[in-house]
Design a protein around this nucleic acid. Structure first.
Length: 870
DNA sequence: TCGCTCACG
DNA sequence: ACGTACGTGAGCGAA
């Protein structure tokens, strides 16, 4: 059997992969989807063809000689998307790591290289296979040169194969004639002009009959239809030029040694490392080189003996820090006593070689192990994943004695969706662990990853300037949040049920009325059904559309409500069902036996540094509408206690004033209370006392907009004014506060240069959108860059305040406790006798949390329920 | 599971 | 010309 060579059109396949594979990025934010797609198709082809030689050809992005001649025509090629462009050099490195021959040559297109090498291969008696997404290559097909073109059909990649005969069968022309076909019909994607008014049909007809552009021209008088004859006569120069453009060079002067293209072992160590770095986990299975993991696994030891366990903990205590994990109960383990935590082992790692899993078995109980960990934390730093969760089992008092790996990873990149130890291993240790690993091995891995990652993460935090934030804010805060979760908030179940029932009655009434007016029953909560009823059956004027149908969002319906009573009813129905399902019924499900809701406060969710609240979300309890606000009456303190609610007054705007150093705004905040009125007065050049309500409202909207990363469109939407008017407001605002304008511009510029923005306390947020080739994405990036430092600094300040409040309450051994945080608001369940002290603490800690150039002001209210206290 | 809608700051 | 305000979480319907 003859030998075989596979030739790949690098850019073409990379390009296909880029658009065919959903966006992927690795830990460093590098886009990897095109590389991933390329490798997948490469492996597939290699398996199918089993070639002896392999070469990948790339274009060098400089004018090539064919196109230099006609620079008008090829000069307009679209620039490559940034997300793809950055993958090209990496792709080449990966191929080099796999010892795959790459050819690229200035002045030559990949086509020409492929054509020339195909010729070399064929003359050497080989079978040649060319892989490309570009049909131009079909002209190279012969009986021994096969062109393979991948196509996406219903999400699946199918490959069309063309030998010379197949080209003839598909296009009715030979590969040689295919060039002439192109010359006549042109190819917009390749900037080949072709002859105007001649399309695929006519071109095929002409070439099948005359075989070439030249011969067709020789017989131009007999050409049919006459229209084509006329076109060819007038544009023969274009046809000739197109033919040159379409012709692939098969004898280019290149130095190419077949021997260099011989396929060796693709699965080299370097390639393995690249695959790790790029996080192509399911491609790693192809490597049988010793995985990095194996060396680590050799150190894993399973321990069940109590004395041995104690010795290990004692040894671990002498190290600077120790990685600790908690493992699930083993099915076959037989503990003497049952334990409720669901854990059955502890992983312990304190060097590359000291990695253990200690299983609670026989005399050794889980409680023993927890207490060993507690003791350990007294002499060394215990690194854990999710310390807050661990605190339920292990009493650690001091934030300095532990290290939360998840939080550290979050601070280094807050954009990720989750921070599991497996993710951290891949991202920060380049260690890909099989998710299916179970038992003591898993527990050892986890402990090892925690131990190894803690050192790496600490170093990275120091480098990025986030270490202090971690140590002085995030770690202490976790203890505060833990206390808040434990405390929970009391909710009156009976009152909640009553509230829900009342809503239920009203909902049924509304339902009937809506059905009557619609003329039929339907599901009002289905935007799809509602859209059909409103805009098709009742023929109401529809506004914007969504991907799936008509928009029935509140702002659309609001505009219709005054004219159509049924719309009014629908809005009310929506409001009521929302209240019932999410709040009345929703919250009821979370009330525990102690009559309280113990929601979770998450520290590693938001991109900006805010805390998030889940199960249930206690940060979006209604307040804006009276009917919803009433639900706050069911949030009550324990007997003998009252609620104190304290919220920062316009903290974000104050932070903006401070960060920008804008004298006018700073002055305004030092002077008076009503900042929106001051803004209105200054922006609209109206005496303070003569500012109208409308002016004030507009100024307020602009103030909000500034914090969000202003855009005239957004503001116009909010105020229901034209973009032009909105734009004028913004201009006048920036004239009034030039410092703000400069600050926002500088922030965006910094973000573009560095790739991230930073808060007053060093919290970072990467803004990868700024490097996007997409206009919308970039504009979004700019708004994010403007907003994140402000929202993030406000979050930092609040966190500092929370730590301070919690510290004061606990150090003074007070009964009062922090129960909720709603971004700029704290709710304290205050023991009545401590009320005055609590108020003092809240005010003091919140207002002194940061020293800014403008005062931080706090509004406080007391009440017998949350409704009253707000 | 995804998109829509809507509750909050 | 593009089509948007920033940050969240939950419930629902439709596939």
């Amino acid at each position: 059997m003859s030998e075989k060579i596979v030739l790949i059109d690098g850019h073409s396949i990379l390009n296909r992969a880029f658009y065919g594979v959903p966006d992927l990025t690795n830990a460093e934010g590098l886009h990897t989807n095109a590389i991933y797609g390329f490798l997948n198709i490469l492996f597939k082809i290699l398996e199918e063809e089993r070639p002896d030689y392999l070469t990948v050809a790339f274009d060098v992005h400089a004018p090539t000689f064919r196109h230099k001649m006609f620079s008008d025509y090829k000069g307009t090629r679209k620039p490559m998307a940034e997300e793809l462009r950055q993958q090209v050099p990496v792709m080449k490195e990966v191929l080099r790591a796999m010892k795959i021959k790459i050819v690229e040559q200035k002045g030559l297109e990949a086509d020409d290289l492929l054509g020339t090498i195909a010729g070399i291969g064929e003359r050497a008696g080989m079978d040649v296979v060319i892989l490309s997404g570009d049909r131009d290559l079909l002209q190279l097909a012969t009986d021994h040169v096969k062109i393979r073109i991948p196509k996406t059909k219903q999400g699946k990649t199918e490959i069309e194969d063309y030998y010379a005969a197949d080209v003839k069968a598909r296009y009715q022309v030979t590969p040689q004639e295919f060039i002439d076909l192109k010359a006549l019909m042109g190819d917009a994607s390749d900037n080949i002009p072709g002859v105007p008014s001649i399309g695929e049909k006519t071109a095929t007809k002409i070439i099948t009959e005359y075989g070439s552009v030249e011969n067709a021209y020789a017989h131009v008088e007999e050409l049919k239809p006459p229209r084509a004859a006329k076109a060819l006569k007038e544009h023969y120069d274009k046809a000739q030029m197109s033919k040159i453009l379409a012709t692939i060079e098969v004898n280019a002067p290149i130095s190419y040694e077949l021997s260099e293209a011989k396929i060796g072992n693709l699965y080299t160590e370097e390639a393995y490392e690249y695959f790790q770095k790029l996080q192509f986990k399911n491609l790693l299975g192809r490597f049988d080189v010793e995985a990095k993991g194996n060396q680590i696994e050799n150190a894993f030891v399973r321990v069940t003996d109590k004395q041995q366990a104690e010795e290990l903990f004692a040894r671990a205590g002498k190290e600077a820090f120790v990685g600790v994990s908690f493992g699930k109960e083993e099915k076959d383990a037989v503990p003497l006593f049952s334990h409720s935590s669901g854990f059955g082992s502890v992983g312990l790692a304190f060097s590359e070689k000291e990695i253990y899993t200690i299983v609670a078995e026989g005399e050794l109980t889980m409680e023993d192990l927890f207490s060993l960990v507690e003791t350990l934390a007294k002499t060394t730093v215990v690194a854990l994943f999710d310390v807050k969760a661990a605190l339920s089992y292990v009493r650690i008092e001091d934030p300095e004695s532990c290290f939360d790996v998840g939080i550290a990873a979050y601070l280094l990149n807050p954009l990720k969706s989750d921070y599991t130890w497996l993710d951290v291993a891949a991202e920060h240790l380049s260690l890909l662990i099989d998710e299916k690993t179970e038992g003591y091995c898993r527990s050892c891995y986890e402990a090892y990853v925690i131990w190894a990652a803690a050192a790496v993460l600490e170093e990275k935090m120091k480098e990025s300037g986030t270490e202090e934030l971690f140590r002085t804010i995030e770690m202490p805060l976790l203890f505060t949040l833990f206390a808040m979760e434990q405390a929970g908030v009391r909710v009156e179940a009976e009152a909640l049920r009553f509230y829900g029932e009342q809503l239920g009655t009203k909902i049924v009434e509304l339902e009937k009325e809506i059905y009557a007016q619609a003329g039929e029953a339907f599901n009002i909560n289905s935007p799809k059904q509602l859209g059909v009823i409103l805009f098709e059956k009742l023929k109401l004027p529809h506004g914007k559309k969504t991907k799936t149908g008509y928009s029935t969002a509140a702002d659309v319906l609001d505009k219709l409500a005054p004219e159509y009573p049924v719309v009014e009813k629908i809005l009310e129905y929506r409001q009521l069902t929302k209240l019932k399902s999410t709040y009345a019924d929703g919250l009821a499900n979370y009330i525990c036996a102690d009559g309280r809701i113990h929601g979770k406060f998450n520290q590693t969710i938001t991109a900006t540094g805010r805390i998030s609240s889940t199960e249930p979300n206690l940060q979006n309890i209604p307040v804006r509408m009276e009917l919803g606000r009433l639900i706050r009456k069911v949030f009550i303190p324990e007997e003998g206690y009252v609620f104190v609610d304290a919220d920062y007054s316009q903290i974000e705007l104050r932070i903006l004033a401070h960060c920008s150093g804008d004298q006018e705004l700073i002055h305004a905040y030092r002077e008076a209370k009503d900042i929106h009125r001051i803004t209105a007065s200054q922006v609209f050049h109206t005496p303070f006392d003569e500012v109208t309500e409308l002016q004030r409202r507009n100024a307020k909207a602009v103030n909000f907009g500034i914090v969000y990363g202003i855009s005239s469109f957004g503001l116009s939407q909010d105020l229901s004014i034209t973009r032009k008017e909105a734009s004028e407001y913004i201009d006048r605002y920036f004239e009034t506060y030039p410092g703000i304008k400069k600050f926002l511009d500088d922030t965006v510029a910094h973000a573009k240069e560095m790739g991230y923005v930073v808060t007053l306390f060093g919290r970072r947020r990467p803004v990868p959108e700024l490097a996007s080739s997409n206009f919308m994405q970039r504009a979004f990036g700019e708004r994010v860059a403007m907003n994140a430092p402000i929202q993030g600094t406000a979050a930092d300040v609040m966190k500092i305040a929370m730590i301070g409040v919690h510290r004061e309450l606990t150090e003074r051994k007070m009964k009062s406790r922090l129960v909720l945080q709603v971004h700029d608001e704290l709710l304290i369940e205050a023991y009545e006798e401590e009320l005055e002290d609590v108020k003092k603490i809240l005010k003091e800690q919140m207002e002194q949390a940061a020293q800014l150039d403008v005062p931080l002001e706090v509004d406080m209210h007391t009440g017998r329920n949350w409704y009253e206290a707000k």
